[in-house]
Computed example of a mutant assay.
Amino acid sequence: MLVSSSNTPTLILPSVRSLVNDRALRHAIIDSPLGALRLVASPRGISGIFMDNHSHPPAPEVLGELLDSPSDDPLIAQCASELAEYFASERQTFTVATDALGTEFQQRVWAQLATIPYGQSATYGELALALGDEKLTRAVGTANGRNPISIVVPGHRVIGADGSLTGYAGGLKNKEFLLRLEGILPAPEATLF
C-alpha cells in the first residue's frame, strides 16, 4: 500500500495472502486526456488504474462490481478528483491510499517509482542501483511494466539510459503525454505544414 506523508511516499507491504483475502474489488471508468481510465479499488486503497490500451490489464472477472459513478466509492472518487487536478496541472503528488497486489520484488520496485518526484525522471539502471544491484535493470523494467497503478505510481517517469522513451504499459504515446504534462519533455514544436 502506497502512503504519502508530506512529500515522501512510502510503501506498506501487507502480506500477499492477506491482500488476496481482502480483495473485494470494485471499479469505475472516468474520462481523461488519455482516454478512458478504469479505476479499481479494494477496501484498502486503489488497486489499479488501467488505460484502454493497457498491455497487462486484469481479467474483467477480477475487477469486481462496476459502479455507475466514481462518486459511488470514496476511494475511487478521491482518486478521480486527484487525477483531474493532476491533468489540470494543479496537483503534483497523490494522497489517495493504494493497494497494489504484487510480488515482494515488484512492491520494492513500485516503492522506488513512488520516490521519483514530479517533473523528474530516472533510468532503469538508477532504480536497480537504488535497490542494491545494477544487474537488476531488466527485472526492474519488467516490474515497472507490471505496475498496476498507472500515473499515481509514476512508472511513466522511467526512461532509458540514453534518454529514450522505452516501453510503457499504457503505450508510448501516453507516456510521452505524461512526460510533457510534467515538463520532463519539452512541448512539441509547432509546424506550419
Results as ranks from 00 to 15, higher is better:
170 G>W: 05
141 G>T: 10
108 R>F: 00
162 D>R: 09
158 V>L: 10
125 G>S: 14
100 A>W: 07
100 A>N: 10
163 G>E: 03
172 L>N: 06
128 A>W: 03
115 T>P: 01
150 S>P: 01
126 E>Y: 06
100 A>K: 09
102 G>C: 04
148 P>Q: 07
146 R>H: 15
117 P>K: 03
104 E>C: 08
147 N>F: 01
154 P>T: 02
172 L>E: 06
161 A>H: 13
127 L>E: 06
145 G>D: 10
152 V>N: 09
127 L>C: 01
121 S>K: 11
104 E>Y: 12
132 G>A: 01
160 G>H: 06
126 E>L: 09
132 G>Q: 01
111 A>P: 04
161 A>D: 15
135 K>P: 00
160 G>S: 11
127 L>W: 01
163 G>S: 07
165 L>M: 11
146 R>P: 00
138 R>A: 13
157 R>V: 01
132 G>W: 06
155 G>W: 07
169 A>S: 15
133 D>R: 04
168 Y>D: 07
144 N>D: 13
129 L>Y: 00
109 V>A: 09
126 E>K: 13
167 G>L: 11
144 N>G: 07
151 I>T: 03
127 L>D: 05
125 G>A: 11
146 R>W: 13
151 I>K: 02
138 R>K: 12
162 D>Q: 08
114 A>M: 07
109 V>G: 09
171 G>A: 00
104 E>N: 13
108 R>M: 13
147 N>E: 12
113 L>P: 08
112 Q>S: 14
133 D>Q: 03
144 N>T: 15
108 R>A: 14
120 Q>H: 10
126 E>F: 00
170 G>V: 02
140 V>N: 10
153 V>C: 11
118 Y>A: 03
125 G>E: 14
170 G>I: 01
152 V>Q: 12
160 G>N: 12
168 Y>I: 01
100 A>E: 11
133 D>L: 01
124 Y>T: 12
140 V>Y: 09
121 S>A: 15
141 G>S: 11
100 A>S: 14
150 S>W: 02
167 G>R: 13
152 V>G: 10
147 N>T: 10
141 G>L: 01
124 Y>M: 12
154 P>E: 05
152 V>S: 09
105 F>A: 07
148 P>L: 05
105 F>I: 07
131 L>A: 02
151 I>D: 03
168 Y>C: 06
134 E>H: 11
101 L>P: 08
156 H>N: 03
147 N>W: 01
108 R>Q: 15
158 V>G: 08
